[in-house]
Design a protein around this nucleic acid. Structure first.
Lengths: 134, 134
DNA sequence: TTGACTAATGTAATAACATCACATATCGAA
DNA sequence: TTCGATATGTGATGTTATTACATTAGTCAA
Protein backbone atom coordinates (compact mmCIF):
# COMPACT_ATOMS: atom_id res chain seq x y z
CA UNK A 1 0.00 0.00 0.00
CA UNK A 2 1.38 3.36 -1.00
CA UNK A 3 1.36 6.27 1.38
CA UNK A 4 -0.51 8.37 -1.09
CA UNK A 5 -3.81 7.38 -2.62
CA UNK A 6 -4.34 7.48 -6.33
CA UNK A 7 -6.74 10.35 -6.66
CA UNK A 8 -9.06 11.27 -9.48
CA UNK A 9 -9.06 14.75 -10.92
CA UNK A 10 -11.88 16.06 -8.75
CA UNK A 11 -10.52 14.41 -5.66
CA UNK A 12 -7.13 16.02 -6.24
CA UNK A 13 -8.64 19.43 -6.77
CA UNK A 14 -10.64 19.20 -3.57
CA UNK A 15 -7.77 17.78 -1.58
CA UNK A 16 -5.39 20.47 -2.79
CA UNK A 17 -7.86 23.17 -1.89
CA UNK A 18 -7.94 21.82 1.65
CA UNK A 19 -4.21 21.23 1.82
CA UNK A 20 -3.31 24.78 0.86
CA UNK A 21 -5.91 26.32 3.15
CA UNK A 22 -4.65 27.33 6.58
CA UNK A 23 -7.82 26.14 8.25
CA UNK A 24 -11.06 24.30 7.72
CA UNK A 25 -13.20 25.00 4.66
CA UNK A 26 -16.89 24.43 4.08
CA UNK A 27 -17.98 22.40 1.09
CA UNK A 28 -19.41 25.50 -0.54
CA UNK A 29 -16.24 27.48 0.01
CA UNK A 30 -14.36 24.72 -1.76
CA UNK A 31 -16.92 24.80 -4.54
CA UNK A 32 -16.38 28.52 -5.03
CA UNK A 33 -12.62 28.10 -5.07
CA UNK A 34 -12.90 25.46 -7.75
CA UNK A 35 -15.31 27.17 -10.10
CA UNK A 36 -12.34 28.18 -12.21
CA UNK A 37 -11.52 24.50 -12.54
CA UNK A 38 -14.94 23.72 -13.90
CA UNK A 39 -16.81 22.89 -10.74
CA UNK A 40 -20.45 23.86 -10.96
CA UNK A 41 -22.41 21.82 -8.43
CA UNK A 42 -22.13 20.91 -4.73
CA UNK A 43 -22.19 17.24 -5.49
CA UNK A 44 -18.87 17.43 -7.25
CA UNK A 45 -17.38 18.59 -3.97
CA UNK A 46 -19.30 16.26 -1.69
CA UNK A 47 -18.45 13.19 -3.71
CA UNK A 48 -14.77 13.99 -3.59
CA UNK A 49 -14.97 14.76 0.13
CA UNK A 50 -16.60 11.39 0.80
CA UNK A 51 -13.78 9.55 -0.87
CA UNK A 52 -11.10 11.60 0.83
CA UNK A 53 -12.76 10.86 4.17
CA UNK A 54 -12.73 7.16 3.28
CA UNK A 55 -9.05 7.36 2.49
CA UNK A 56 -8.38 9.11 5.80
CA UNK A 57 -6.80 12.06 4.04
CA UNK A 58 -9.17 14.64 5.44
CA UNK A 59 -11.41 15.07 8.46
CA UNK A 60 -14.86 16.42 8.90
CA UNK A 61 -15.42 18.82 11.77
CA UNK A 62 -18.97 18.11 12.85
CA UNK A 63 -19.38 21.11 15.07
CA UNK A 64 -18.65 23.61 12.31
CA UNK A 65 -19.71 21.73 9.19
CA UNK A 66 -16.30 22.02 7.64
CA UNK A 67 -13.40 19.92 6.42
CA UNK A 68 -9.64 19.96 6.99
CA UNK A 69 -6.72 18.13 5.48
CA UNK A 70 -5.32 15.62 7.93
CA UNK A 71 -2.29 17.12 9.61
CA UNK A 72 -0.63 13.79 10.33
CA UNK A 73 -0.88 12.15 6.96
CA UNK A 74 1.85 9.65 7.74
CA UNK A 75 0.47 8.16 10.91
CA UNK A 76 -2.17 5.72 10.07
CA UNK A 77 -4.43 6.32 12.97
CA UNK A 78 -7.25 4.20 11.62
CA UNK A 79 -5.77 1.20 13.27
CA UNK A 80 -5.49 2.59 16.75
CA UNK A 81 -6.48 5.91 18.23
CA UNK A 82 -9.27 8.31 17.70
CA UNK A 83 -8.45 11.91 16.98
CA UNK A 84 -9.42 15.00 18.91
CA UNK A 85 -9.63 18.47 17.42
CA UNK A 86 -9.15 21.79 19.15
CA UNK A 87 -10.89 24.48 17.13
CA UNK A 88 -10.19 28.14 17.78
CA UNK A 89 -13.38 30.14 17.43
CA UNK A 90 -11.36 33.31 16.96
CA UNK A 91 -8.83 32.48 14.24
CA UNK A 92 -10.32 29.24 12.96
CA UNK A 93 -7.11 27.30 13.46
CA UNK A 94 -7.53 23.59 14.11
CA UNK A 95 -5.09 21.45 16.06
CA UNK A 96 -5.27 17.71 15.88
CA UNK A 97 -4.11 15.34 18.58
CA UNK A 98 -4.73 11.86 19.81
CA UNK A 99 -4.56 10.45 23.28
CA UNK A 100 -4.22 6.81 24.15
CA UNK A 101 -5.91 7.23 27.49
CA UNK A 102 -8.98 8.90 26.07
CA UNK A 103 -9.13 6.29 23.35
CA UNK A 104 -8.89 3.59 26.01
CA UNK A 105 -11.56 5.08 28.22
CA UNK A 106 -13.97 5.36 25.33
CA UNK A 107 -13.24 1.79 24.35
CA UNK A 108 -13.80 0.67 27.92
CA UNK A 109 -17.20 2.30 27.95
CA UNK A 110 -18.26 0.87 24.61
CA UNK A 111 -17.02 -2.60 25.55
CA UNK A 112 -18.87 -2.67 28.82
CA UNK A 113 -22.04 -1.44 27.16
CA UNK A 114 -21.93 -3.69 24.14
CA UNK A 115 -21.79 -0.65 21.90
CA UNK A 116 -20.03 -1.17 18.58
CA UNK A 117 -18.47 2.15 17.75
CA UNK A 118 -17.85 3.09 14.16
CA UNK A 119 -16.71 6.67 14.49
CA UNK A 120 -15.97 8.95 17.39
CA UNK A 121 -15.92 12.72 17.30
CA UNK A 122 -14.04 14.78 19.85
CA UNK A 123 -14.09 18.51 19.25
CA UNK A 124 -12.92 21.11 21.70
CA UNK A 125 -14.20 24.58 20.94
CA UNK A 126 -12.60 27.63 22.47
CA UNK A 127 -9.80 30.13 21.94
CA UNK A 128 -6.25 29.08 21.10
CA UNK A 129 -3.17 30.25 22.95
CA UNK A 130 -2.24 32.83 20.33
CA UNK A 131 -5.64 34.43 20.24
CA UNK A 132 -6.07 34.29 24.02
CA UNK A 133 -2.87 36.22 24.64
CA UNK A 134 -3.56 38.77 21.90
CA UNK B 1 -31.26 28.53 42.43
CA UNK B 2 -34.14 26.18 41.82
CA UNK B 3 -33.59 22.85 40.18
CA UNK B 4 -36.09 23.70 37.51
CA UNK B 5 -35.84 26.78 35.35
CA UNK B 6 -38.77 29.07 34.95
CA UNK B 7 -39.65 28.51 31.33
CA UNK B 8 -41.64 30.63 28.94
CA UNK B 9 -44.49 29.14 26.98
CA UNK B 10 -42.45 28.37 23.88
CA UNK B 11 -39.56 27.04 25.89
CA UNK B 12 -41.89 24.68 27.77
CA UNK B 13 -43.48 23.45 24.59
CA UNK B 14 -40.12 22.70 23.03
CA UNK B 15 -38.71 21.15 26.16
CA UNK B 16 -41.76 18.91 26.59
CA UNK B 17 -41.52 17.78 23.00
CA UNK B 18 -37.96 16.67 23.65
CA UNK B 19 -38.72 15.20 27.05
CA UNK B 20 -41.47 12.94 25.77
CA UNK B 21 -39.52 11.83 22.71
CA UNK B 22 -37.58 8.61 23.11
CA UNK B 23 -34.65 9.94 21.15
CA UNK B 24 -33.17 13.03 19.57
CA UNK B 25 -35.33 15.33 17.45
CA UNK B 26 -34.35 17.80 14.77
CA UNK B 27 -35.49 21.40 15.08
CA UNK B 28 -37.85 20.94 12.16
CA UNK B 29 -39.37 17.80 13.62
CA UNK B 30 -40.09 19.76 16.76
CA UNK B 31 -41.59 22.53 14.66
CA UNK B 32 -43.93 20.08 12.98
CA UNK B 33 -44.97 18.59 16.31
CA UNK B 34 -45.81 22.02 17.64
CA UNK B 35 -47.79 23.39 14.72
CA UNK B 36 -50.92 22.50 16.61
CA UNK B 37 -49.72 24.75 19.41
CA UNK B 38 -49.36 27.68 17.07
CA UNK B 39 -45.77 27.30 15.97
CA UNK B 40 -45.26 28.55 12.43
CA UNK B 41 -41.60 29.37 11.94
CA UNK B 42 -38.22 27.72 12.61
CA UNK B 43 -37.07 30.63 14.67
CA UNK B 44 -39.66 29.93 17.32
CA UNK B 45 -38.01 26.57 17.82
CA UNK B 46 -34.41 27.71 17.54
CA UNK B 47 -34.88 30.52 20.02
CA UNK B 48 -36.33 28.15 22.59
CA UNK B 49 -33.60 25.60 21.94
CA UNK B 50 -30.91 28.22 22.51
CA UNK B 51 -32.30 29.08 25.91
CA UNK B 52 -32.74 25.46 26.91
CA UNK B 53 -29.13 24.83 25.92
CA UNK B 54 -28.08 27.79 28.07
CA UNK B 55 -30.00 26.36 31.00
CA UNK B 56 -28.34 22.98 30.49
CA UNK B 57 -31.70 21.27 30.12
CA UNK B 58 -31.02 19.88 26.68
CA UNK B 59 -28.04 18.94 24.55
CA UNK B 60 -27.23 19.43 20.93
CA UNK B 61 -25.84 16.46 19.04
CA UNK B 62 -23.51 18.01 16.52
CA UNK B 63 -23.00 14.95 14.42
CA UNK B 64 -26.68 14.49 13.63
CA UNK B 65 -28.04 18.05 13.89
CA UNK B 66 -30.49 17.09 16.57
CA UNK B 67 -31.39 17.80 20.17
CA UNK B 68 -32.14 15.67 23.22
CA UNK B 69 -33.43 16.37 26.69
CA UNK B 70 -30.68 15.98 29.25
CA UNK B 71 -30.97 12.56 30.84
CA UNK B 72 -29.31 13.59 34.09
CA UNK B 73 -31.20 16.73 34.88
CA UNK B 74 -30.21 16.67 38.55
CA UNK B 75 -26.46 16.51 38.21
CA UNK B 76 -25.16 19.90 37.44
CA UNK B 77 -22.36 18.93 35.15
CA UNK B 78 -21.62 22.47 34.07
CA UNK B 79 -19.28 22.86 36.97
CA UNK B 80 -17.13 19.82 36.33
CA UNK B 81 -17.25 17.15 33.68
CA UNK B 82 -17.95 17.15 30.03
CA UNK B 83 -20.50 14.77 28.64
CA UNK B 84 -20.09 12.07 26.05
CA UNK B 85 -22.89 10.70 23.92
CA UNK B 86 -23.20 7.27 22.38
CA UNK B 87 -25.56 7.47 19.45
CA UNK B 88 -27.01 4.33 17.90
CA UNK B 89 -27.23 4.71 14.13
CA UNK B 90 -29.77 1.91 13.99
CA UNK B 91 -32.41 2.81 16.57
CA UNK B 92 -31.45 6.41 17.25
CA UNK B 93 -31.12 5.88 20.97
CA UNK B 94 -28.70 8.18 22.76
CA UNK B 95 -26.85 7.32 25.95
CA UNK B 96 -25.18 10.02 27.95
CA UNK B 97 -22.20 9.50 30.21
CA UNK B 98 -19.34 11.41 31.68
CA UNK B 99 -15.88 10.28 32.57
CA UNK B 100 -13.54 12.08 34.92
CA UNK B 101 -10.47 10.68 33.26
CA UNK B 102 -11.44 11.84 29.81
CA UNK B 103 -12.38 15.21 31.22
CA UNK B 104 -9.00 15.38 32.94
CA UNK B 105 -7.03 14.39 29.85
CA UNK B 106 -8.77 17.00 27.76
CA UNK B 107 -8.11 19.60 30.42
CA UNK B 108 -4.46 18.56 30.55
CA UNK B 109 -4.14 19.07 26.84
CA UNK B 110 -5.84 22.44 26.83
CA UNK B 111 -3.81 23.63 29.81
CA UNK B 112 -0.51 22.66 28.30
CA UNK B 113 -1.44 24.30 25.03
CA UNK B 114 -2.88 27.50 26.44
CA UNK B 115 -6.21 26.68 24.86
CA UNK B 116 -9.24 28.13 26.64
CA UNK B 117 -12.00 25.63 26.04
CA UNK B 118 -15.58 26.77 26.06
CA UNK B 119 -17.38 23.64 24.95
CA UNK B 120 -16.34 20.10 24.17
CA UNK B 121 -18.23 17.63 22.06
CA UNK B 122 -17.73 13.88 22.38
CA UNK B 123 -19.99 11.77 20.21
CA UNK B 124 -19.58 8.07 19.65
CA UNK B 125 -21.44 6.81 16.62
CA UNK B 126 -22.16 3.14 16.16
CA UNK B 127 -24.66 0.44 17.03
CA UNK B 128 -25.98 -0.09 20.54
CA UNK B 129 -26.01 -3.40 22.37
CA UNK B 130 -29.66 -4.07 21.70
CA UNK B 131 -29.42 -3.45 17.98
CA UNK B 132 -26.12 -5.30 17.64
CA UNK B 133 -27.56 -8.48 19.14
CA UNK B 134 -30.78 -8.27 17.12
C1' DT C 1 -13.65 -5.36 -31.13
C1' DT C 2 -17.58 -5.75 -28.78
C1' DG C 3 -20.25 -5.94 -24.91
C1' DA C 4 -20.90 -5.58 -20.14
C1' DC C 5 -19.68 -3.96 -15.92
C1' DT C 6 -17.97 -0.49 -12.62
C1' DA C 7 -16.38 3.95 -11.16
C1' DA C 8 -16.40 8.72 -11.90
C1' DT C 9 -18.62 12.80 -13.50
C1' DG C 10 -22.19 16.51 -14.85
C1' DT C 11 -26.47 18.87 -13.87
C1' DA C 12 -30.87 20.34 -12.03
C1' DA C 13 -33.86 20.14 -8.53
C1' DT C 14 -34.96 19.65 -3.92
C1' DA C 15 -34.46 18.72 0.98
C1' DA C 16 -32.72 19.81 5.48
C1' DC C 17 -30.75 22.97 8.68
C1' DA C 18 -30.17 27.74 10.43
C1' DT C 19 -30.21 32.88 10.65
C1' DC C 20 -31.42 37.83 9.46
C1' DA C 21 -34.34 41.70 9.63
C1' DC C 22 -38.04 43.84 11.26
C1' DA C 23 -42.43 44.31 13.68
C1' DT C 24 -45.08 43.53 17.87
C1' DA C 25 -46.07 42.12 22.54
C1' DT C 26 -45.23 41.30 27.46
C1' DC C 27 -43.55 42.37 31.85
C1' DG C 28 -40.94 44.23 35.63
C1' DA C 29 -38.64 48.08 37.61
C1' DA C 30 -37.74 53.14 38.00
C1' DT D 1 -46.55 55.43 33.08
C1' DT D 2 -42.68 55.16 30.72
C1' DC D 3 -38.60 52.83 29.91
C1' DG D 4 -35.78 48.91 28.99
C1' DA D 5 -35.21 44.09 28.65
C1' DT D 6 -37.00 39.86 27.20
C1' DA D 7 -40.02 37.14 24.44
C1' DT D 8 -42.67 36.47 20.32
C1' DG D 9 -44.48 36.50 15.29
C1' DT D 10 -43.44 36.40 10.46
C1' DG D 11 -41.32 36.45 5.92
C1' DA D 12 -37.35 36.18 3.52
C1' DT D 13 -32.95 34.54 3.00
C1' DG D 14 -28.68 32.04 3.75
C1' DT D 15 -26.18 27.69 4.33
C1' DT D 16 -25.45 22.76 4.14
C1' DA D 17 -26.45 18.29 1.99
C1' DT D 18 -28.91 14.82 -0.89
C1' DT D 19 -31.89 12.77 -4.65
C1' DA D 20 -32.55 11.59 -9.26
C1' DC D 21 -31.13 10.97 -13.58
C1' DA D 22 -28.03 11.32 -17.61
C1' DT D 23 -23.45 10.82 -19.41
C1' DT D 24 -18.56 9.64 -19.75
C1' DA D 25 -14.47 6.92 -19.02
C1' DG D 26 -11.93 2.91 -17.77
C1' DT D 27 -11.50 -2.33 -17.20
C1' DC D 28 -11.79 -6.81 -18.49
C1' DA D 29 -13.39 -10.98 -20.46
C1' DA D 30 -15.37 -13.39 -24.49
Amino acid sequence: MTTTQELTKNQSLVFNALARADGPLSAYTILDQLRGDGFRAPLQVYRALDKLLDYGMIHRLESINAFVACSHPHEHHHSHGMIAFAICDTCGQVTEFSDEIITGRVRDWTNSNGFKQSKTTIEIRGVCGNCASA
